[in-house]
């Protein structure tokens, strides 16, 4: 571990000013990911700017019915919030399916969005990795790829994004509010995370020094009928092999009036399944329609040596989730 400086920021303005112009500086919030990386030798910031007290830790009503989640809200608190549980149940479930109780007590909303891949090669500084060391090569391509991407990967990187929370937020079109040296800006969550392309070292579209201050959940009636399904090797404390966040709204004739679907565990970013959604809108809620929707989204999948199972698993998980959400209330 390299020696580093530590500063505690009093407010977000001070934090942003502290990082401006210092390439080697990084924000520290819950520390559940960054501190690990410092111990492993993946990250060696010269300066840590502690924003854990500067960030808003409140969840507030937005005019019009949405929720504004301060970036400092801990995962455990967000999952327990009654408004989240009632109005955005998939988000509460996604949060509770992630990590462990201890980690959720520390991890923040902003930090969760920015956590980095658990690709074992990325986490081992003695192996080549384009994300960690651009141009060094991708060890995973010919390596152990059970956890890796089947959608949107590139020859430079096949890593997956590990967040559960972000998958649910993506299904709900959350808006990420960011403060940088130039002031505030808003980013649709779909535009926050990026595909690896030939710049796999960049996980997001944030510029250096930009700080997530809040996440806005829009007012969204469909979100009340939503759920999150995480498929994993252990019953708890394991990253998703595949996960699905879905919300449905059925018309009186049992056709889909609206539907929201996002996948986790399939790509370098949380994956909004727009093709599947398009396939379903206006169609009756039948098993065949669910299958067709899964096929529409996953037809482009390009599995690696060890992860072809993810196609069937994602397809089945989506079908099962839609089945559960569209089952008549009495039958549930």
């Amino acid at each position: 571990m390299k020696p580093f400086e530590y500063e505690r920021a009093a407010d977000t303005g001070g934090a942003v000013a502290a990082l401006a112009g210092r390439r080697g500086a990084a924000y520290l919030a819950g520390g559940t990911n960054l501190v690990d990386h410092m111990k492993l030798g993946i990250a060696s910031p010269e300066l840590l700017v502690d924003v854990s007290r500067a960030l808003d830790a409140r969840i507030e009503e937005l005019p019009g019915g949405g929720l504004r989640i301060g970036a400092g809200v801990r995962n455990a608190d967000l999952a327990a919030d009654m408004r989240v549980r009632k109005r955005y149940p998939a988000l509460a479930r996604a949060l509770l399916s992630g990590a462990s109780g201890q980690l959720r007590n520390l991890a923040t909303t902003g930090g969760n969005l920015l956590q980095r891949t658990r690709c074992p090669y990325f986490q081992d500084p003695t192996t080549p990795c384009n994300k960690r060391e651009p141009g060094s090569g991708c060890s995973a391509l010919d390596g152990h790829t059970r956890q890796h991407a089947i959608l949107g990967a590139s020859q430079h990187c096949v890593a997956t994004h590990p967040s559960d929370m972000a998958v649910a937020m993506l299904a709900f079109d959350a808006v990420v509010r960011v403060r940088g040296a130039g002031g505030l800006r808003e980013i649709a969550i779909a535009d926050l995370h990026r595909l690896p392309g030939d710049v796999p070292q960049r996980d997001t579209t944030l510029e250096h020094g930009e700080l997530i201050t809040d996440v806005d959940l829009p007012s969204l009636e469909i979100a009340a009928r939503s759920t999150y399904r995480k498929v994993r090797d252990r019953a708890s404390y394991a990253f998703a092999l595949v996960s699905v966040a879905a919300a449905v709204e059925l018309a009186s004739d049992d056709t889909f009036a609206d539907v929201r679907i996002a996948f986790g565990g399939l790509a370098h970013k949380p994956w909004r399944a727009t093709l599947a959604e398009d396939e379903l809108r206006g169609r009756p809620a039948t098993e065949a329609a669910f299958r067709a929707a899964a096929h529409a989204e996953l037809a482009a999948a390009q599995p690696l040596r060890d992860n072809a199972f993810k196609i069937a698993m994602a397809s089945n998980a989506l079908v099962a989730t839609l089945r559960e959400l569209t089952m008549p209330r009495a039958a549930r």
Partner: peptide, 20 residues
């Protein structure tokens, strides 16, 4: 290819937890 263990932590090497 690397001759390396890739499951070198308890997040990658799964041991049954309480919920299991």
């Amino acid at each position: 290819a690397l001759g390396a263990i890739v499951t070198t932590d308890l997040a990658g090497y799964h041991i049954a937890a309480n919920a299991d």
